[in-house]
Design a protein around this nucleic acid. Sequence first.
DNA 1: CCGTATCCGCTCAGATACTG
DNA 2: CAGTATCTGAGCGGATACGG
Lengths: 213, 213
Amino acid sequence: MAARDYGQYGGITQALELVGERWALLIVRDLLVGPRRYGELAAGLPRIPSNILASRLKEMQAAGILRRAPHSRVIVYELTPYGRELEPVVLALGAWGFKALGDPREEQIITPDSMTIDLRTAFRADVAANLPPTAYAARLGGAELLVRVDGSALDVARGNGPADLAFAAGPGIRRLISGELGAERAIADGVVEVLGGSRDLLERFASTFHLAA
Amino acid sequence: MAARDYGQYGGITQALELVGERWALLIVRDLLVGPRRYGELAAGLPRIPSNILASRLKEMQAAGILRRAPHSRVIVYELTPYGRELEPVVLALGAWGFKALGDPREEQIITPDSMTIDLRTAFRADVAANLPPTAYAARLGGAELLVRVDGSALDVARGNGPADLAFAAGPGIRRLISGELGAERAIADGVVEVLGGSRDLLERFASTFHLAA
DNA sequence: CCGTATCCGCTCAGATACTG
DNA sequence: CAGTATCTGAGCGGATACGG
């Protein structure tokens, strides 16, 4: 550790020594969505070697960022309060990275947890506050998400359920969120496919989730 | 690049592919303070190997985060507008890491640039807005900084100058900023040494720069 | 099956020396 | 001063194997 030390005393250096290693913040990202089992983490980080996942979990546990907790007969990993304080970091990073996103490369997948955090990143609480409660059932890449907006509160859950608008989209959803494409145009171009509910609500979705470049 | 790819499509993954490598965010941190020459960057990152510094600069230049710019006969590196948008990320990371700071290890140094960013992190614009303009000359570790607060604006410059309060402190300044130690107590314990001006102003400094655990 | 440990090959980081 | 070149070793990536 001393050999791989940044040799400086300061907030950012300290933070990077705790979560600056490869994969660490991605594990935190997924745990921000909720407690996860080892295998769930591995599934959400498809290219992570199992030994690295095991090491990171141990390191971050030792750093007080996460803990192992028994949850009805199985072990899950969950963030400690201090670990949860990384949320602003992860969201800021996501907002910044989102602007640099191009089209996905062939082998890049979309996981439910990463999409959930991206939606949280793009969520405009101030805009949503003035809108009626709305539920969206979104199929995005490989992820099925039930997105409920109620005032300035956002809840994203995996799976399906009753919704005011159901739609499916590929990674082109990015263009809707960035404002590059309007809702009408997104439907017309086939970027978004409305599966049920009132298609007008896609406009509302786009104004609720927005991250301009 | 494809082999070392995270294999996911999302904002955070993208961000980490651009600035997730070792040392990258520390370079950004220093450039957030101002344009810097190669040698200045190397001096502010004492343990960075020169080849790594050179690689990171090239990578981040290719990613549109920074650029080389001629500045009166010498080349400096400066952030692009997109690179400057990393400021919220760096500040959030600094705020989080600051809370985990313990006492410095023997070989950990304090650089002017890292201290400048840490002060920006701890700056309470809302508190400062209600205070009269104040200039502090602070000697912190190896860094001499002139800190000027005027309303909700903060300016930190290297070097010395006229100030309402001049003081010197070691890394124990952390205890003052975290509220672990009051201003009076910090002076009494020798954590802070007042070199000039009205010692009452240290109280004001502590309320202006505050990051609670 | 879930959670690890253990192999090996390889890339990248770390240290030092060197050049325009 | 501003990098480049080279070597070594640590950590990552990938596969496989092991224990509950």
